[in-house]
Nucleic acid binder design. Structure first.
Lengths: 208, 208
DNA sequence: AAAAAAATCCCGGAAAACAGGGGTTTTCTT
DNA sequence: AAGAAAACCCCTGTTTTCCGGGATTTTTTT
């Protein structure tokens, strides 16, 4: 029996997943959790799954960070990402951080079962649309989501609120020059040359 | 029997919904559709539901527009919005355009059943978190999502790509003054005073 | 056919952001 | 305890956006 746990904050989705997985008699869903904290706790205490089906957008932590953390402590657990996002940087970041599979939520139910079996065989599984998305990105540089610092995130949020450099500087009790430095670094990290693009990408990657 | 159809592009979600609705014997799910076009066609041809459970983010049209269209032709059909978005402007726009209910996807299954029964009684139903979201918006001005024109959307997308006014003007073969006018109008419509905020809001409301 | 909305174009001055350099002090991580 | 990374600070000049007015011509919608 393959022991699976589901990490997903939409009960209806959980219901659907369980229902689909029930059709495969070699799969046993031994638990479900609505946020990152509760899974980590469960893993600590008692639960020992073979596979984790994990939504990428959880209420408390990003799936990317959660994957990294789980993989650090329990390297044998296979993680399959479940997501509505087909942006390459998101996919790429998940895989880079230890996910063995990536399935879009618009995939058919049996893709999930296929994914579970594939990763249990030690292989990587990407659903059809995900493969499409990566293919079109193709060639050279499929970038991961930039790692931004606490401060940068803070400034990014204030920019998103529509504050100007001067207002941000005042609010954070730092010089406008510092704010501009952070702005510069953000543009650099995101590989763009104005803040508007940074905000757009950050919104896309759910970093705001 | 209450005849219900489901409009939702995630098969797993559809599975979950059907499973939940099966527990109520007075509800009959007579069909499901993965996009706006197919529902409209089905309504035209044969299907006559009492209630439509509709995902707000469909691949082809926005739930807001689809609601408007359906309500114009079939005013008796009750529409319940299903969404991951708890932003007031989204909720407000849906209700304003004829939706009778709004349920967040992180709601429990029985909220959906409650919603169906409530709207069939001619009342409006909002799930707990939605009510919370509207309450915190409170007082005065819960704004709807601005209606933007074709051209404005086009310019918004180019701005989001990081193009400057000059570059946009060149690409669209219009004067920079025109681009600036559109920029101005966008800021006005969104009620903010810089383009970055416009892009952020547009991303939030899935207008990009 | 008339009215309303959208799209287009124009100006000038002020404000903000960007580009491209520099450097110091904390705070993590190894 | 060292080294690296983050956070902080500073400068000047250029570009772009914003704000405050305008106005005209197409499209839609009623």
């Amino acid at each position: 029996m393959i022991k699976v746990i589901v990490v997903e904050d939409h009960p209806i989705m959980v219901e659907g997943l369980k229902n689909i997985l029930r059709t495969d008699l070699t799969i046993d869903v031994i638990g479900d959790y609505g946020n990152g904290k509760s899974v980590l706790q469960a893993l600590e205490e008692k639960v020992h799954p073979d596979v984790i089906l994990m939504d990428v957008n959880l209420p408390d932590v990003s799936g990317i960070n959660l994957t990294t953390e789980i993989k650090k402590k329990y390297e044998d657990i296979k993680i399959i990402a479940l997501s509505v996002h087909d942006e390459q940087p998101v996919i790429h970041s998940m895989l880079q951080n230890g996910a063995s599979g990536y399935v879009l939520k618009n995939a058919l139910g049996n893709e999930i079962i296929k994914a579970i079996n594939t990763v249990m065989d030690g292989e990587e599984y990407l659903c059809t649309s995900t493969r499409e998305a990566l293919k079109s990105a193709d060639q050279d540089l499929l970038k991961a989501i930039p790692r931004i610092t606490r401060r940068e995130k803070e400034i990014l949020q204030l920019i998103g609120k529509g504050l100007t450099t001067i207002q941000i500087a005042e609010q954070l009790f730092i010089s406008t020059h510092t704010v501009e430095s952070h702005r510069k670094n953000l543009m650099e990290k995101f590989g763009v040359n104005n803040t508007t693009s940074v905000v757009k990408l950050a919104a896309e990657y759910k970093l705001l």
